[in-house]
């Protein structure tokens, strides 16, 4: 698993060497391979633009596989110590000020995370898209001075947060540089734009990503990855509910 990113490089080389356009499935599989890892520990911060100014929320995350993640908020002081735990399709939030663990479910999943342009639903989403969407190549464009495939994804199931997505995937690095997410009605719900990419441990990823909830007239959230370590050993208790009140 540690050398999964080599598969991405090899796949990219194979796609390029074949001299013909790959199909959407192959591109999406390459994107998924680029994202996937056994585990990762990261620190990041979000700069959330509101109508009255901006605020910064910092957090540390531990992620194992695709289904388990634990997040502890570090800043601002009011949010310090708030924790979130995702196990499979369940999500809990712990608030030290009330010593309460709240299960986030139902309509609460559509709420904004810390006032950002991301929703809890976005956090709950399986990052591996190939199992959820049918991709079709729509064309080629240049984004961030990088040649990209333009993929249109259609949901395989009805219960996904986004019914369709259009994404611009770096042809060589298989990083999603831009994405538009749509509702079943075709209405644009969210956009993401990568403004900075970085190569870490041999894999390319978006380091600075701008999220925009298209239903909000103003604002936007810049998500910045500060540090990220892949395939780190993470203690088992980090992915248990006990971590929340620890």
């Amino acid at each position: 698993m540690k050398h999964r990113w080599w598969l991405v490089v090899l796949l990219g080389w194979a796609i390029a060497a074949s001299g013909k356009a790959p199909d959407g499935d192959a591109i999406l599989a390459a994107v998924d391979r680029n994202i996937g890892s056994d585990s990762k520990v990261s620190t990041a911060h979000m700069v959330i633009e509101g109508r009255r100014g901006s605020r910064t929320v910092a957090f540390r995350s531990w992620i194992r596989g695709m289904d388990e993640s634990s997040t502890e908020y570090l800043e601002p002081p009011r949010e310090r110590g708030v924790k979130m735990l995702k196990l499979g399709d369940q999500l809990w939030a712990y608030y030290p000020s009330t010593d309460r663990t709240i299960k986030i479910s139902g309509h609460m999943l559509r709420q904004s995370v810390m006032g950002s342009d991301l929703s809890y639903e976005d956090l709950m989403e399986d990052p591996l898209l190939s199992g959820l969407y049918d991709p079709v190549i729509e064309g080629e464009e240049v984004v961030l001075e990088r040649p990209c495939w333009v993929l249109h994804l259609t949901a395989k199931r009805d219960d996904l947060a986004y019914d369709s997505r259009t994404m611009w995937v770096d042809k060589e690095r298989f990083v999603i540089l831009r994405e538009h997410r749509f509702a079943k009605s075709g209405k644009l719900l969210k956009t993401t734009d990568v403004t900075e990419v970085a190569e870490i441990d041999g894999r390319w990823l978006g380091k600075t990503i701008e999220f925009k909830d298209a239903l909000r007239s103003v604002g936007g959230t810049t998500f910045i990855v500060d540090t990220i370590d892949f395939d780190e050993e993470i203690p088992e208790y980090v992915f248990t509910k006990a971590i929340l009140r620890k």
């Binding site: 605020r55 608030y95 009330t98 309460r100 709240i102 709420q111 904004s112 810390m114 006032g115």
Partner: peptide
């Protein structure tokens, strides 16, 4: 416990 949103949009519990 009141579960609501702060004026900055964060979830708040009190």
């Amino acid at each position: 416990t009141l579960i609501s949103s702060t004026m900055y949009g964060s979830m708040a519990t009190t």
